[in-house]
C-alpha cells in the first residue's frame, strides 16, 4: 500500500543532511512552507544551499534559517524584500553566498532538472552581468545564454490538499514554484492544509501527481 502521509513535521524533514541543497517554495509570503522550514530549523541540518525566490523577511522561516547561520548560499532571484534584514546583514559581512538568477531562469533550471535535461539556452540575461562566464550561442539571430539544471536534494513545498498517494492541489497563487520544485528534488516533502481520501481529488484538477511527492504532512490552516 502506498501511504506518503507522515504523522509529524519532524518525520517530514527527517534525514535531511548537512550540506543539502534545499528547494523552498514561495513568492513573498505566498506559498511558503513555513511549518516545514521551522521543522528543518529544529532538525538541525546546516551548511545548506537554499534555492528560493526571496531570501526571507522578518524573523520567520527562511529568514530564521539564515539568522541561525544554517545557510551557506542562497540561490534566488530577489533577495531584497521589505524586512530581508538577516540576509542583507550576513551578505554585507561576507558570511553568506548569493547566486542571483533571473526568476524565469531559476524556475526553468529546476524544471530542466526535474525533466532530466542537461540545461537550456535562454535569451534572458544575454548581454548582462548575469551572463558573465556563461556559454553564449546565437540562435535565430539572438544571443542565448546556456543555463545548467538546478536539482535539489530536498524540496519543501506548500500545497492545499493531498491524498495518501501524494496527489496535490494548490490554492490560488500559493502554487508558484511548488509544482516545478516537486519534480526537481530527490526527496519532495509537502505540507498541506488537509488530507483527503484517495479518489476525493478530481483527477482532472490534480496539479502535482503523486509520483513527484515523497512525504506529506498535514498542517492546520493559519
Amino acid at each position: 500500500m502506498i501511504d506518503k502521509r507522515v504523522a509529524t513535521l519532524a518525520d517530514a524533514v527527517a534525514g535531511i543532511s548537512d550540506g543539502a541543497t534545499v528547494l523552498i517554495g514561495g513568492f513573498g509570503d505566498s506559498g511558503v512552507p513555513v511549518e516545514l522550514v521551522h521543522a528543518l530549523l529544529d532538525q538541525g541540518a546546516r551548511d545548506l544551499t537554499v534555492v528560493t525566490n526571496n531570501a526571507g523577511a522578518g524573523e520567520s522561516d527562511v529568514a530564521a534559517l539564515i539568522r541561525e547561520r544554517r545557510v551557506r548560499t542562497v540561490v534566488c532571484s530577489y533577495p531584497r524584500s521589505m524586512g530581508s534584514i538577516w540576509f542583507e546583514e550576513l551578505w554585507r559581512a561576507g558570511e553568506i553566498g548569493l547566486e542571483l538568477v533571473p526568476q524565469g531562469t531559476l524556475s526553468e533550471r529546476m524544471r530542466a532538472a526535474g525533466a532530466g535535461l542537461g540545461g537550456f539556452f535562454t535569451p534572458t540575461g544575454a548581454d548582462t552581468l548575469l551572463a558573465e562566464g556563461k556559454e553564449v550561442r546565437t540562435i535565430g539571430g539572438r544571443p542565448h545564454v546556456f543555463e545548467h539544471p538546478l536539482p535539489g536534494d530536498v524540496a519543501l513545498v506548500k500545497a492545499h490538499r493531498a491524498d495518501r498517494w501524494g496527489n496535490l492541489v494548490y490554492r490560488k497563487a500559493a502554487r508558484n514554484y511548488g509544482p516545478t520544485m516537486a519534480t526537481a528534488a530527490t526527496l519532495t516533502v509537502v505540507q498541506v492544509e488537509e488530507f483527503v481520501e484517495l479518489g476525493d481529488l478530481d483527477p482532472e484538477a490534480v496539479v502535482t501527481p503523486g509520483i513527484f511527492v515523497d512525504r506529506v504532512a498535514e498542517v492546520a490552516a493559519s
Binding site: A55, S77, Y78, P79, R80, F87, E88, W91, R92, L98, L100, V101, P102, Q103, G104, T105, T124, G125, T128, L130
Partner: peptide
C-alpha cells in the same frame, strides 16, 4: 557595492 543585487522577473 552596498546592496545585494536583486533581479526578479525583469530580465524575462
Amino acid at each position: 557595492a552596498t546592496m545585494p543585487p536583486a533581479v526578479g522577473g525583469a530580465m524575462d
